[in-house]
Design a protein around this nucleic acid. Structure first.
Lengths: 126, 126
DNA sequence: CTTTCATATGAATATTTGTTCATATGTTTA
DNA sequence: TAAACATATGAACAAATATTCATATGAAAG
């Protein structure tokens, strides 16, 4: 009996306590549950959007590419703080950048980011 | 001169240092910038999705309503932890619940939540 | 009315995270 | 090459957060 089957048995038996109304459904969901890593990645993605400084940066960049000092002006945040957050956003591949002379020009890395942001904005305006 | 106008002047003058290529754009964006509160709410929303326990809970509930002990079975998390997280999700109005006998039955509070989740999942599978 | 089951919650703890400060890197201009 | 500017980064600190443990509440069954 595989670990998975053992787990299934556990659900069938132990779970019957609380009415058992949802046991079958839970069993079915359990079979199609995304793996740990997917949930981790998903939460990491949202975590990046879960800070107001970063969300402001992303909003700004959603209006067009700009350099770090533009962002510093636009938001009321230290250059250092912006730079640290940009590094995180870059690591998460939510933004990309290129150098142009003394400046570093940042931009949103793909449209998905913009879509998720808009979805969020739509949601909160209710 | 209003505070806003003073701010505008600051952008025009101080900002000209770094090339000035984006000054006009930044000025324009600054005019249409959502307020602090909106950014706060937006980041709070995403913060709720930015934890793997909560994201698992929401995924589970996206498959259908279920009681706390179902969630505990499905995820590998303590009943206490689930309960604490459900409280946060409830406060953020991402889930709602009703009582049924001894059980508390939770469900996703509206379709937006499901949409945002799906968007996220789509994004990470690249 | 006492016991049992399902859920909630407060306090404590450990970890994560964001900002600040100082300073380093890299690029242009004088 | 030195000075000025734009950005990046390491270390330290403070604040926020997630889990655990113990226990409380609340509902149903005996």
């Amino acid at each position: 009996m595989s670990d998975r089957e053992v787990e299934q048995e556990k659900i069938k038996t132990e779970h019957s306590e609380c009415g058992g109304k949802y046991v079958e459904m839970v069993k079915k969901i359990n079979d199609n549950m995304p793996c740990e890593e997917e949930f981790y990645d998903l939460s990491e993605l949202f975590k990046m959007l879960g800070d107001s400084t970063r969300v402001k940066i992303l909003y700004a960049l959603s209006q067009g590419e700009m350099c770090v000092c533009d962002i510093v002006e636009l938001l009321d945040v230290t250059q250092s703080a912006v730079s640290h957050q940009l590094r995180l956003l870059k690591q998460a591949r939510l933004v990309k950048y290129r150098r142009s002379g003394k400046s570093a020009i940042y931009s949103i890395s793909d449209d998905h980011v913009y879509t998720i942001l808009s979805m969020g904005m739509e949601h909160i305006s209710e």
